[in-house]
């Protein structure tokens, strides 16, 4: 994954994520939309084979990059939680 900034201001970030597709972008969008200070979050893939997704985030009251960081931290924590609980569930199932 190689993210690249296109536009960056206090309440708005626009960046391109080279090497990613819907899996990551949709997860990020969904997570961002759960935050109160998010005004707009979305992405566009110009062409499914030739283009990388361009993600746009607009916020109110809080800096866009801090909101983005918080959302990513949440995603990371949730994935780690999933991994741990899945491993636990598998070993519990093997014992039972």
């Amino acid at each position: 994954m190689e993210p690249r900034i296109i536009e960056h201001s206090t309440f708005e970030i626009k960046f391109e994520i080279v090497g990613e597709g819907h899996s990551f972008c949709n997860l990020l969008r969904r997570t961002l939309l759960q935050e109160d200070s998010v005004d707009f979050a979305g992405y566009n893939i110009d062409h499914p084979l030739l283009a990388s997704p361009v993600f746009t985030l607009k916020t109110e009251r809080r800096h866009a990059h801090t909101v983005l960081r918080d959302a990513l931290e949440k995603m990371l924590a949730r994935t780690e939680e999933f991994r741990k609980k899945f491993n636990q569930a598998v070993s519990d199932f093997d014992v039972a």
């Binding site: 994954m1 993210p3 900034i5 960056h8 970030i13 960046f15 994520i17 990613e20 899996s23 990551f24 990020l28 990059h65 983005l68 960081r69 990513l72 931290e73 995603m75 990371l76 994935t79 780690e80 999933f82 991994r83 899945f86 491993n87």
Partner: peptide
């Protein structure tokens, strides 16, 4: 399990990017 690890890795990369802003 591997999928969760790979997903985590990618989110980690994005987080590094967000931290560099």
């Amino acid at each position: 399990e591997r999928a969760a690890e790979i997903l985590k890795e990618r989110i980690g990369e994005a987080l590094d990017f967000a931290n560099s802003l």
